[in-house]
Design a binder for these strands. Structure first.
Lengths: 251, 251
DNA sequence: CGTGAATTTGAGAGCCATCAATCTAAGTGG
DNA sequence: CCACTTAGATTGATGGCTCTCAAATTCACG
């Protein structure tokens, strides 16, 4: 079941019928090696991509070529669904690890939109989740210190991986270099290193190789001013995420 | 015609029939005074809002209450169309000036989605434009200096206002305080002031009261590393915007 | 004119970038 | 099994961009 993680544990979910419609819309699976660019800016596309296994990045380029991440995608993310509507993308998609993706032709999405309006709305919802996350990334860059940014980023990844069963709430694998984290948080790799040391010394988290351990998720969320509302998780999952508004840290 | 600026001069546009469907989906118009909050975070909503006249801001709050803009909306923007799908918002919408808005009940949007799939796709497109702009805001905050950020912001506002006929390509009204600009660019009002002085001294632009004049749009775009691809303007409009890729400043 | 908001300018401090060097770990080939 | 290579992590020193605090000036408006 290639698409089983799509919308998993969000406030909206597919019905069983819808999920099988989505599954049968998959044309084929494909793999890409770590480091490859999967979809390139400005190329017209007629297929969209569901990430099945591995991690992908979405990054924009400044006109001078500097690269910046706007999203880190986990399995279940319909990484370029918006290309179905926009027809060409304003950014690149890259493979952070070796990845498996499922390809969905836009013609199949046309059929879904014509025959399953409710399901089309759920696909729309998926793209709006991305937008909501973008807004938090804006907030993070604009309002948070380096320490807070990295803490916030780790909380977000923890929550997203928790939703698809790839974190237990404290431990998960995140095969990113400190340079990658810098590109996600608007920091240099050098400063990311210092911040991670500080988080380690504060006993909030550790990160050796790809293994991340959040020793105190609640305090980490407080440090990063993380509140997971914007992830639109379903109530059950929301309760399991540190920083949820039940913590009464709403403004 | 309250909705005439919706999708105006973008790569997708409504047919005449679709536009009249949208127009008749409007329940009523409404006004709000400058400074008012129009839609508040976390409130469930059953109506979406098209901005008809005036300017609105979209802003998120950090958990400590600090406010940050993620968008400045101009007439024709369907400012909270995403609430139709998300059901509740993760941010606030505020009136920057006195504004007129048109209210579209979600029930009317349900009808459109059921009966006009192609039109539904265009509404989806609208929300994806917002996401594309969010990505540029992320880039701006992460990769640009203060001077570049403000230059980029002014180029963006110029392009958006040009598309709806409220800029001539060099001159437009932008009734924002320097504090507002700071919240949009991740800067303090003090530093915004210094940056504007520098842009003035470089003979790139001036800003007295609400009147913005771009004395050299091309050089301003180059300064802010502005490339308008992400606005998905139609070809004719794209050519009129400084920084378009015909300038051969693509990476 | 008086009042308050917004703009403008100055001085000092701090966070983070930059530059540079060292260290570690994981291959790779002989 | 061990030099050799390379990518990434780590640490130090320095500098600059931007924030903070503070005060003066301009502007809008009643």
């Amino acid at each position: 079941m290639l698409t089983r993680n799509v919308l998993r544990n969000r406030t909206e979910d597919f019905t069983d019928e819808e999920r099988s419609v989505l599954e049968s819309a998959v044309e084929r699976a494909q793999t890409h090696a770590a480091g490859q660019t999967v979809v390139r800016q400005r190329c017209a596309v007629d297929t969209s991509t569901v990430l099945v296994q591995g991690l992908m990045t979405r990054h924009v380029h400044a006109a001078d070529g500097r690269r910046h991440l706007v999203a880190v995608h986990v399995p279940g993310d319909f990484v370029d669904l918006h290309a179905y509507v926009l027809k060409q993308l304003d950014h690149d998609l890259g493979a952070l690890t070796d990845v498996t993706v499922a390809l969905v032709p836009h013609a199949a999405l046309d059929a879904i939109q014509a025959r399953h309006p409710q399901m089309a709305r759920r696909l729309w919802f998926l793209t709006l989740l991305d937008a909501a996350m973008h807004r938090q990334w804006v907030m993070r860059l604009a309002s948070l210190s380096a320490l807070q940014r990295v803490a916030h980023f780790l909380c977000e990844m923890n929550a997203k991986l928790l939703a698809i069963g790839q974190s237990d709430g404290q431990r998960f694998l995140l095969p990113m270099t400190q340079t990658d984290v810098g590109e996600a948080c608007g920091l240099t790799n050098v400063h990311v290193n210092r911040v991670l040391r500080e988080l380690r010394e504060m006993a909030l988290c550790s990160w050796r190789g790809a293994q991340v351990v959040l020793h105190d998720p609640v305090r980490l969320a407080a440090t990063g001013l993380f509140a997971p509302d914007y992830l639109y998780l379903n109530p059950a999952m929301s309760l399991r995420v540190a920083g949820h508004t039940g913590d009464a840290n709403a403004r």
